[in-house]
Design a binder for these strands. Structure first.
Lengths: 199, 199, 199, 199
DNA sequence: TATGAATGAGGCTTCATTCAT
DNA sequence: GATGAATGAAGCCTCATTCAT
């Protein structure tokens, strides 16, 4: 990511657009969208602000492009989930895949988590929310007890917590991931079982 | 100017400071801290920007004051928790009280949840994080299995989710609160039991 | 206009708004609207750009305010004209008063004449055009021969020409004004007579 | 890119230069010179900005070239006029020919009329002004009464008015042209007669 | 208790132009 | 005959802040 391949003075081939995205995401995630200025991004890249505008029409377009690129797996996951039978196995698999997607696009998710106020006003907000709700609808049985519905959502939230606030509880990321998965799977299972029990 | 003609609209009895805080919190929660300008706050109040500076030394001080006022219950909760024995009952009571604190200062918590990037850079960030960690340390048994530690944190997160993302799952706030509590209490209980089981 | 009353260091009382308008009009007339930057205006006044924004919401508002202030006499003229009987005397009086209005707001009219492309896109454009058409409708008899209608419009245009392109034909402004008036009055009279003749 | 697939849309036979001029003139006339950007011109043509620079050294050169191409007839008219005797017939013929020139290069004249502020700063300004003054000098008898000199100039202005502001008075362009010509010829004749009368 | 007037820094964006390919 | 990539200058505007009154 953003790593120079030959180590020399940053080859400016066709990769500037990519480099802008990388740097922007890093800064957005670190400081927030509004506090990150285009000047900062440009300076970090050793380019002029105007160069950014050759590649993106506006500041918002930078973040939208990031979002579109990095969020696709989530869309595909929803798509996939919709076509599966609503079994416990499916739900567990969704949790697993979602966790993987989260890990793969960690900086973006961190950004979205920490800048919800911003995201809400950007036109991305809606798309993202829709996808999350798609996911939720697959996990949740609308006839289930309310508490079990909460459990399903909680499973997702637990994964998020695992990415962003549990770093000081256990430093080994692998162990952390395992523990988090255990809880999430447990929650989704209880939610599913609860539903069954009533039958 | 400033003269009360009818006594209706102007209750300014020296409560301007309070009114500033109210309006500011509403706007911060709605649009985020950076996107809310002092001009906006002043306009909403029918005052001049300069007036804000009579009551607060800076923009940051406004939010810090809000934070200090609204977050005190959380501090007291931690204080209280520290003096209790680490029983299951204590933990459950903490969950209950935290939920109440959350409800009482909903806009502020919403703000903090949605503007983490900002909060992190403000000097409040630390205080808040410390309190949250205080809470966590009371709930968590450091010798517990990692998954059980995750469960404890998850309980807190579930309460948050209950405030902010479960509104479309069930519109009756009272039912929602009950269901959320059930899950959170359940999680904390499992976490505690898991710990005991190993003994 | 913009003249300091006491000669000392520009007294900054409540006249800054006025001074901005003066300087802006001068520059707009001299260089055109687009080529005049706010920086230039501010520098000429010994103020910051930001100060301009304390008095006007945008660059466009500066010109709109100028337009509104300076164009009022024209509106009143149209109003007056509408209430007079459509006699030759009325029309001649309109020509005379229009000429006076032109002289009184010469820089603005010069600006509008030389920046029509700009004016068209500003929201002022319409108002101005409407007033000019109001004037024309008073001068023109819709049943008159086309050539006589043209004469009426030509009378107005002659007045404009008198202000802006005849300066090198005769340097004494008073004589110039007289000659221009003679031709304009002559044109409007012919137009009126032509109409009568057909009766 | 640039490959003609069907031969329809692309007649690029080295006529790009011409196409640039056409588009530029259209845009300059519509929006003004300063408000028209090279990006806009390029986009409208389906070319890159850089392509414009292959054909013209600068933005100014585009307009200068337009001016030079389209204004030549005016130069020739002045040339021709200078060699004629200063009779009434000559003057009338000049009015006629000028009207024709105006019609032939309407967009350019419209542009010049509506962007005088810009034109003045471009180096074209002088040339154009000189030509107009040449024309005027042919029409005007320096010994004539001032009012008659004004009449001569007014005749030219009437032609301009005919092109640009009389469109709503009479929609049939042919009738309009006739009426305008009548008035202009009339004015120039009066101017000439006035001069003679004094003899 | 507040306002009116202003500032300095910095934000996003657009422009004409250049140059290697 | 034209493009892709970039630059430097400048534009308009907004913000938090100050201070005399």
């Amino acid at each position: 990511m953003g790593v120079t391949m030959d180590g020399t003075k940053q080859q400016r081939r066709g990769n500037t657009r990519q480099r802008i995205q990388d740097v922007a995401l890093a800064l957005f995630a670190e400081q927030g969208y509004e506090k990150t200025s285009l000047r900062e991004i440009a300076e970090r890249l050793g380019v002029t602000k105007a160069a950014l505008y050759y590649h993106f029409k506006s500041k918002e377009e930078i973040i939208v492009s990031l979002f579109e690129d990095l969020t696709r797996p989530l869309g595909e996951l929803v798509e996939w989930g919709r076509q599966q039978p609503p079994t416990l196995e499916t739900k567990q698999e969704i949790i697993r895949r979602y966790s993987a997607a989260l890990a793969a696009a960690a900086p973006l998710f961190r950004f979205m988590q920490e800048n919800q106020a911003t995201v809400r006003e950007l036109r991305i907000g809606d798309t993202f929310r829709q996808r999350m709700m798609g996911l939720r609808n697959i996990l949740i049985d609308p006839d289930a007890r309310l508490a079990d519905q909460v459990r399903s959502v909680s499973a997702l939230f637990t994964l998020h917590a695992g990415m962003f606030v549990l770093q000081d509880i256990e430093s080994d990321p692998e162990k952390r991931r395992e523990a988090v998965m255990e809880v999430a799977i447990d929650l989704i299972t209880q939610a599913h079982q609860g539903t069954r029990d009533r039958d």
